[in-house]
Design a protein around this nucleic acid. Structure first.
Lengths: 138, 138
DNA sequence: GTGAATGCAAAACCTTTGCAACTGG
DNA sequence: CCAGTTGCAAAGGTTTTGCATTCAC
């Protein structure tokens, strides 16, 4: 007998001790993982069912501080969310508003190209490339 | 007779055709240029006189689209503004919240280290380095 | 003179919060 | 069981808007 394709096996990178994988958190993570278009909280609210908007925000906060989702700010509009944990930048099309992942070049310089003051401790680097995407260039 | 030090000579990079340099826009630009700590709209409202908050926002929008000021989004809090037009990144201290300019290393790789899809047109690249600044490391 | 910019207050928008009810481990 | 999570509605903070007045060119 074949089990119905329940939407979600955990399938999540190492979770912190004591992290509660609730139905809501799983659903939010599933949408992020399956539709990698960097949805906003409102997008996620529409794409899920029986989750309040406040809980969407709670889940995103929980997933973000658990380290399995990154928050992306391309402009002043709603925050977007990204389940890609590999080093990458975000390309933001100023025409259509889409946000896509951009990988580093195969053998790009390995050290930070920025002259940080002595004593600075780097936690994360967020790079947003604004421009026009191939589809909008036509 | 010595003239009182009126706050402002134009002293602004090439302005677009038809840009009206009003008193308010000049004052906002002067504060940005003289106190390069990346103030928010609310900061600028406090540091200027006889300018309404709505006008602060109008001025920032005007200066930004005129290309002489850049908007900086380090997190979800208020937008910050930067009059430094040279290529640089922003270091955001997650402890004290300060934002400082970071210059590129003298001979860092000259081309984008990102594999952009063919047909992408890059307009600007915003890099925010989150971490702990030297003062907060103590 | 005239279109653009300002000031005010109100509205819009995104996100967080307080608190009672519920639930995952 | 019970601390942590949810849902709701209300509040908070930031930014925008409508419109009459004022101003830069």
């Amino acid at each position: 007998m074949i089990l119905p394709a329940t939407s979600s096996a955990p399938a999540i990178p190492a979770l912190p001790e004591g992290f509660r994988m609730t139905r809501q958190r799983q659903q939010v993570y599933d949408v992020l993982r399956d539709q990698r278009d960097h949805p906003t909280a409102a997008d996620l609210f529409e794409r899920t069912e029986d989750i309040s908007l406040a809980t969407i925000y709670n889940c995103l906060e929980a997933l973000t501080s658990a380290g399995i989702v990154r928050q992306v700010s391309t402009d002043r509009s709603s925050a977007r969310y990204c389940p890609n944990l590999h080093e990458h930048a975000h390309f933001h099309c100023s025409a259509c508003g889409s946000v896509t992942d951009v990988d580093p070049k195969p053998r790009a310089c390995s050290t930070t190209p920025w002259s940080l003051p002595t004593g600075s401790a780097v936690e994360t680097v967020d790079t947003v490339i604004h421009g026009i995407c191939p589809s909008c260039s036509n």
